[in-house]
Write a protein that binds this DNA or RNA. Structure first.
Lengths: 192, 192
DNA sequence: TAGTGATTTCAGAAATTTCTGAAATCACAG
DNA sequence: CTGTGATTTCAGAAATTTCTGAAATCACTA
């Protein structure tokens, strides 16, 4: 591996991290390298910088493309493909969330739904279904929230983040106002 | 594997999923099995149900304990250990979030901070640091938000979830009230 | 159409992870 | 102590994943 020390630490860490997620070491390293490179890199440059085979780079880039995590660029009068990551880290976060949901959450929800449709043939199955129902409900709540907030513009999203738990204070305040103004009982869980 | 069909589907799916995360197939399967079992199971029962070796069960349970994902129970006059998962799925979610943060986010933050302390020795390093700074800022924002909302009682958390993006509406309303009442300009990003 | 360089594919090699059975350890009862 | 059963450890076997080099494919030019 032939990189400036700071970049190398970063790349190595992402390699480690990669294996702790589902993606493998090389994929993590390539992503990290692209992320901190000022200009797009071609496959050969990546292979040289990381000291890995050209074919490994090809396969790993394919993987990153499947995750929508890299952008393909071209230089005039150069047939080679060049790769980068998006500039905006918020955009990267969104992509990551979306892809992980697609790969991890959606299949689980669909398996759960499938199982919950069936009729339990024993007390053991009845109880198992009950538990899966609880899990299903929780995941649905989380994904609904996600589908909702992912629509927000980045600025609003950042605002929401920075408020954190303090929004609950607002909720209380709002409930007071409403109940005061219209004589209704507060019901913070009401969706509409 | 010797399980009721519904349970088996669930267990197999979690095994698959496990490998897509960092944990391995067996660990995922054991967790799934415990989750849907009405009563705590001992190691031997797990080994039999899943058709895996006793020693594999032992190592996998150790792994699950390291994740704080299982509870140890004892029956009177029985020396064996029995295992379950917590009843409350929200509690499970909290544990999962906490442990993943500990293993994935915290080490990354610490590597980033370390690198950002250093003085760049070249333009390439300078740019790389800039990018890592962006990443660091984003992750800090996310973890601050997390540290904040994880304190909430489950009921409030659920309320917050169900509101989703609608809280931004409230923020706008609040800003109007404040600016009206006190003659201040709205500043939704203001933390205090 | 032949030639050139970039890229991909893929069979097998290398590395890593997972799993097992046998032995060791442990905890307790008699 | 000694025996019994539960549990853990760990070296190596088995399985899986990752990586490579050689060959194939592709895209484009002359």
């Amino acid at each position: 591996m032939n990189l400036p020390p700071l970049v190398q630490s970063f790349v190595l860490h992402f390699g480690e991290m990669g294996s702790r997620w589902g993606i493998n070491r090389t994929v993590g390293q390539i992503y990290a390298l692209l992320f901190v490179s000022p200009a797009p890199l071609c496959a050969e440059e990546i292979a040289d910088s990381l000291g890995i085979s050209r074919s490994n780079v090809s396969m790993s880039l394919r993987e990153l493309q499947a995750w929508n995590l890299v952008l393909l660029k071209h230089k005039p009068d150069d047939r080679r493909d060049f790769f980068t990551t998006p500039d905006d880290v918020w955009q990267i976060l969104r992509t990551l969330a979306e892809e992980r949901k697609k790969r991890e959450v959606d299949p689980t929800l669909s398996v759960l739904r499938e199982i919950l449709m069936q009729r339990p043939a024993s007390e053991a199955e009845r109880y198992a279904q009950e538990r899966m129902g609880e899990m299903h409900t929780l995941i649905e709540q989380l994904t609904h929230w996600y589908e909702d907030v992912k629509q927000l513009e980045t600025e609003r999203l950042a605002t929401l983040l920075s408020l954190g738990a303090k929004v609950t204070k607002l909720l209380e305040a709002k409930d007071r106002v409403i109940s005061l103004g219209r004589g209704r009982r507060p019901n913070p869980a009401n969706k509409s």
